[in-house]
Design a protein around this nucleic acid. Structure first.
Lengths: 192, 192, 192, 192
DNA sequence: ACGCCCGGGACGTCCCGTTGTT
DNA sequence: AACAACGGGACGTCCCGGGCGT
């Protein structure tokens, strides 16, 4: 049992990292297995659904992890804007630490696989939804109006900044978004 | 001559649409050729650089086109916020019209190919830069402070909303961003 | 295990025969697989290095085999000249039996692939060296002066005769060389 | 006319050099045309027979040239052995000067194309025959017994030495053969 | 005589998924 | 649980040849 979960987990971790960095179609199962020196024959024992199942679970895994991180930071910080700034900083550090390979853990797969696989698309939607609802919940707790809409915009800005930063190999877009997050979220009051 | 530009252009158009919808690795050259009933022998003649060159030119083409559209709308509308709202609406219409397959013309390729091909990454950066600078120019003309930073954030929010909307098959994220764009861009004043 | 060596060996045997008869570039892997009805998926499994590895191992295999034959004949015949005559006769029989398709097992590949692949060239050099040193060793044992030089010349004459005979579809060049081998190898005494 | 022969000749020269260095199948027509910046559309005007005709004429051209060189050297040197030594030296210099790419101008094509194309094989046989008969003629003129047989052996030794030297990137085999040529050709007397 | 373009096939590579054996 | 081996399909590349217009 220990070994089983161990192997399964290692496959999943490796696959998730590669899917995040390269997308679904650019990532070969051989690469997943070779990186990490994983057993070859047992892949279809642990993941009978093949590559698609691997992607679905990878997306779920990374979605849950980021969701947990969001929850933790938002929980531990009274000001949600400050919390989101921390999150952006975290994502930026991870991006730079991975030599600008690992941006949003879901977007790459969402864009290149969700058109061709409904299960993968659903998993990506689930991840996005979970992040958005966590943010919305804390925005509501902070007394902001229309927390769902604001959460969507905040998430969109962060996602977009990750794409720009990753492609440019430059954290500036993330910093720009972090800087304007407060204005963006407080805007509602001045316009409403 | 006419035939040349015609065939070459048709290949490029078809490839661009497929790259946009599916990404780089998920798009096969056979698919590019079959959609549009294009001659196979010509591809290597017109694009000796192969798939990579095709992707680079596709990104450039779509980057230039969206840049032109941005320019046109921003030029024709005094209020840049209103112009960006129009752009978002346009992108949303295109997304819905393509059955939520064609979002940002660059991001899919940027995410799944720019890690593996420097020329493609450079082309994507070029497209992002061109859009951003067009937006920044008009924000500056409108007298907004820090137009570059605001342009980055606006572009990021739109890009992110496109990813969310495409994956969810739901235009709501785009509407949410469009609604808050004004607040986002006017933020500086209220905080400064 | 049995099956493994069997399949791998069969691929190698088939490839070696085709490389010998047609050279490296004229031999397609499909042909290798179809002759012998070998599974296609296995080729990449057994020879991850692809065609090049196949050629290297083919050259090594045939080099070793001919080396063994040389050794056996030279060992079993007191007069090295007589032994070489036997070898030439053997090669001629094989050439004729293959309808003048299979000459020297190395030269065809050496000429058409060693310019483009250093590993293949090295393998060919290894085969030539092994043959030459076996011959030289027995020439030395027979008390001939400068056995290395004589071995080189004998090998060259045999190789050249194989090329001529194969191209002409006529064993005469091999017979001519066999006839003069004794004179060639004893020459040293008369000139020294 | 001048241009025509000029272009035709340049194509032929380029093709001959490439066939000599790489063989028939490893040499692409694109490579022939690109090296030398030759007109593309007119290849099938000058060589309606395509690649095969190109190879046949290349072999003929190089066969005739070497034949002429042989004739010239043998004519200008009283001792045929000395003449052959000169020829070997010449071939060795050419081989080394071409970075061990250009050995016998015929053998590479003979080995990798004569199995698949009878016209090419015939052209190769023609070249070999012409060289052999030139040598035989001068050996006869020098009063040697069995000049045809000796010419065959001499040619074989030189051909074989070229293969060995080219593959090893080392002129030693050619020197070894040159050194023993006299003994080889005088052998008849001592054994007869 | 030549440049432009087309046609379609074959190449070597590599993939994903599934056996049968241990 | 793991592994060696299979199966066959698809990929991107590149080729040889020929038709078009001049």
């Amino acid at each position: 049992m220990d070994r089983r979960r161990d192997t399964r987990g290692r496959v999943l971790r490796t696959a998730a990292a590669l899917f995040r960095a390269q997308g679904y179609h650019a990532t070969g199962l051989n690469q997943v297995l070779s990186e990490g020196s994983l057993p070859k024959g047992s892949l279809y024992f642990h993941f009978p659904g093949g590559k698609e199942q691997l992607a679905v679970e990878s997306v779920r895994l990374m979605g849950d992890e980021l969701c947990g991180a969001l929850e933790a930071v938002l929980e531990g910080t009274p000001d949600p804007v400050e919390a989101l700034e921390q999150i952006v900083a975290l994502l930026g550090e991870h991006l730079a630490a991975s030599d600008f390979r690992e941006g949003c853990p879901v977007s790459t797969v969402a864009l290149d696989a969700s058109a061709g696989s409904e299960p993968i698309r659903t998993a990506c939607v689930g991840a996005y939804d979970s992040w958005e609802s966590v943010i919305a919940r804390h925005l509501r707790a902070a007394g902001l109006p229309d927390p769902e809409g604001l959460a969507t915009v905040a998430l969109a800005a962060i996602e977009g900044a990750l794409v720009l930063a990753r492609t440019r190999r430059d954290l500036t877009p993330l910093h720009a978004v972090a800087t304007r997050l407060r204005g963006l979220l407080h805007t509602e009051r001045s316009t409403a």
